[in-house]
């Protein structure tokens, strides 16, 4: 078959470019272990409720006096369904999902994270005193609309944690700020 000389050059050039691209991708994925950027803390979604950090859900204070909240999302409820936090105090949230994607959102704040099964979402933020609504903003199935919880921020002096600090490795406490 007769192929025009320029066309042939372009075909070879395109082929070489494709090979170079694929080599780069393979090099990145296998050689340098670069995957899609994502959370650094992983968890087996089937064993969340037996995980030392997540088997109980609620608020706790670590050895350094910092306030934490552990939350688990499941179709179609937030665990716990009622959260009380100290106002004007940095709170570190540890969250994961045991089934599908859920979107944790405390309405009218920027406390917001997509909870992805297999990954632990973590961020630190603080709130003005008041009552807040927690909704699920990531479509999660037939009960998506009922997946809501309440949150109150009260003065620090009146606040008590709901549970003892879980027995977790220090990495969880310091956390990698996933945001």
């Amino acid at each position: 078959m007769k192929i025009d000389r320029y066309e042939k050059i372009w075909m070879w050039a395109s082929g070489a470019m494709l090979c170079a691209f694929f080599a780069t991708m393979a090099g990145a994925a296998i050689g340098s272990s670069i995957g899609p950027p994502s959370h650094v803390q992983t968890i087996d979604p089937q064993k969340v409720l037996s995980d030392p950090l997540f088997h109980q859900q609620g608020t706790w204070v670590d050895r350094g006096g910092r306030v934490h909240a552990t939350i688990v999302a499941t179709a179609f409820a937030w665990l716990p369904a009622q959260l009380t936090l100290p106002a004007a105090t940095p709170v570190t949230f540890h969250m994961t999902s045991i089934d599908v994607l859920h979107g944790f959102e405390i309405v009218r704040t920027n406390a917001q994270a997509t909870l992805i099964p297999g990954y632990v979402s973590q961020f630190t933020t603080q709130f003005a005193p008041g009552d807040y609504m927690i909704v699920c903003n990531e479509y999660c199935g037939v009960g998506h609309h009922i997946m809501a919880a309440k949150m109150a921020a009260i003065p620090r002096s009146q606040w008590r944690p709901t549970m003892a600090a879980p027995d977790v490795p220090p990495a969880h406490e310091n956390g990698h700020d996933s945001h």
């Binding site: 979107g103 309405v107 699920c136």
Partner: peptide, 12 residues
Amino acid sequence: GMLGMPRRIYTY
């Protein structure tokens, strides 16, 4: 949306 209504909810 500003008042917190999530997308794709069936009722409220």
